[in-house]
Amino acid sequence: MSRLRNKGWVLPASLVLALLFTLLPLPQLLQPLRPYWLALVLAYWVIETPDRVGLGFAFCIGLFADVMFGGILGEQALRLVVLTFILQRFRARIRFFPLSQQALAIGGLLFNDRIIDAAIHLLAGEPMLPWSYWWAPLLGMALWLPLYVMLDSVRLGKRGR
């Protein structure tokens, strides 16, 4: 039997959990610190299984999230496609970085995502997000290591001892 068992349920389950974490209510004070869970989980899958997760997949997940959260239709789709495109372009380098350097790259991508989000809000004539929302990419960067290790262990079937 192959070392990599067929665990096709891990990808959809992780995306559903990311969507649910995004829906969890937070106190108003912590709301700006909410990491972009969907982008973090999608980034893991783009890096580890690029044959299963690509631009079309990111676009569909983004549209689903837009409908689910009631935001501007296409906003999250655009943000996730840009993130996926950059990750696909630099996947060969990022994949072999140590996890600490991967976290820095993911932090940069999440910061880029905030810039795209701010531009979309500006173009749509919506009020700009407060400055405190710029802290979320740092939290996402800090969460990359535990998220990566957890998803990797579930995907590969490793058990902690």
Score class of each variant (00 low, 15 high):
Pro32Met: 02
Pro32Ala: 09
Pro32Glu: 05
Pro32His: 01
Leu33Ser: 02
Arg34Ser: 09
Pro35Glu: 09
Tyr36Asp: 14
Leu38Asp: 00
Leu40Lys: 02
Val41Gly: 06
Leu42Ala: 10
Leu42Trp: 02
Leu42Thr: 03
Ala43Val: 03
Trp45Ser: 08
Glu48Phe: 01
Thr49Val: 14
Pro50Trp: 04
Asp51Asn: 15
Val53Glu: 08
Gly54Glu: 05
Leu55Arg: 08
Leu55Lys: 05
Gly56Ile: 11
Ala58Thr: 01
Ala58Leu: 02
Phe59Ile: 10
Cys60Met: 15
Gly62Cys: 09
Gly62Ser: 12
Gly62Ile: 02
Leu63Ala: 02
Asp66Tyr: 05
Asp66Val: 00
Val67Gly: 13
Met68Trp: 09
Met68Lys: 12
Met68Leu: 14
Phe69Asp: 02
Phe69Ala: 12
Gly70Met: 10
Gly70Phe: 10
Gly71Asp: 07
Gly71Cys: 07
Leu73Trp: 13
Leu73Ala: 07
Leu73Lys: 05
Gly74Leu: 08
Gly74Gln: 12
Gly74Lys: 03
Gly74Cys: 07
Glu75Cys: 10
Gln76Ala: 01
Leu78Met: 09
Arg79Ala: 06
Val81Asp: 06
Val81Gln: 10
Leu83Ile: 10
Thr84Asn: 12
Thr84Arg: 03
Phe85Val: 02
Ile86Cys: 11
Gln88Tyr: 03
Gln88Ala: 04
Arg91Asp: 13
Arg91Trp: 01
Ala92Met: 09
Ala92Glu: 15
Ala92Val: 12
Ala92Pro: 02
Ala92Phe: 13
Arg93His: 11
Arg93Phe: 11
Ile94Cys: 07
Ile94Ser: 07
Arg95Trp: 12
Gln101Leu: 15
Gln102Asp: 03
Gln102Glu: 11
Ala103Phe: 06
